[in-house]
Amino acid sequence: MGELKRQVDTDYVYFAEVELLLNHGVGYPELIPQLREKVYREGLEESPYVKKADRKLIQSVHRYIELLETSDEPIDDKEDEPINKWWWHLHKIAKGRYPSLTLPEYLREIYRKRRKYWRQKGRLTHPHSMDYTNHTWRV
């Protein structure tokens, strides 16, 4: 019974932290990758709580990065972690520079759709984009 309770707690705690952080701005953003790593180590990646939290994190990755950068302990991507541990590479995901085939299948389509949107949005706000009101280039 103790083992089952520990596993249920880990996947639910990860889910609850993601929900609180992204819905209400409450929590510790630097804790999210650590909790996701614990989920991975405990083999709980098929948990419905984990999948729901993962989807929310990918969909709201820019909000997550904003919250992370204003936290007391902002962290960057961990380049020493394997690329398939996507939770350590959320800045790459936010920039649309993460290889989609290394994501779990349930996250790929979300990422691909969001990446297309992020790239289009990035082009519109790029500092060297054309200012069509004056027909001049902004630099």
Rank of each mutant, 00 (worst) to 15 (best):
R63W: 03
R36H: 07
E81K: 15
Y40C: 00
D11E: 12
P33M: 07
G43D: 06
K56D: 08
E37V: 06
G25R: 12
Q59V: 01
G43I: 10
W88Q: 01
L57A: 06
G96P: 00
L90K: 03
K38M: 13
E79M: 13
L44A: 02
E66D: 14
V61Q: 00
E3V: 11
I75T: 12
E81D: 09
W86P: 01
P29D: 04
W86S: 07
W87S: 02
L57N: 05
V26L: 14
W87Y: 15
V13I: 14
W88P: 03
R6D: 14
Q7D: 05
R36E: 04
N84K: 13
E73M: 11
A94Q: 05
D77Q: 07
S47G: 06
V61N: 01
H91L: 08
H89M: 05
H91P: 03
D80Y: 11
E19A: 09
K85H: 15
D54S: 02
V26N: 13
H62G: 08
N84P: 02
A16S: 12
P82K: 09
K78G: 02
V39A: 02
D9N: 11
P33N: 03
K52F: 01
E66G: 07
R55C: 00
T70G: 11
L21T: 08
W86E: 03
Y98A: 05
G27E: 07
R36T: 05
S71L: 12
G96Q: 00
K38G: 08
S60A: 14
K38A: 12
Y14I: 01
R6N: 14
S71R: 10
P29Y: 06
P82N: 04
P48A: 02
L22G: 06
V8K: 08
P48T: 04
N23V: 09
K92W: 07
D80V: 11
E42T: 04
G27T: 05
A16I: 03
E30F: 09
D9C: 07
P48V: 01
E37N: 15
V8G: 00
Y98F: 10
L57H: 03
K78C: 07
R97F: 10
V18F: 01
I65F: 06
S47L: 06
S47Y: 03
L21N: 07
I32H: 02
E46F: 09
V26Y: 14
Y49L: 01
A16V: 08
E3L: 12
I65S: 04
D72M: 14
I32R: 03
E19N: 10
W88R: 04
R6F: 10
H91E: 10
E3A: 11
I83G: 02
D11W: 01
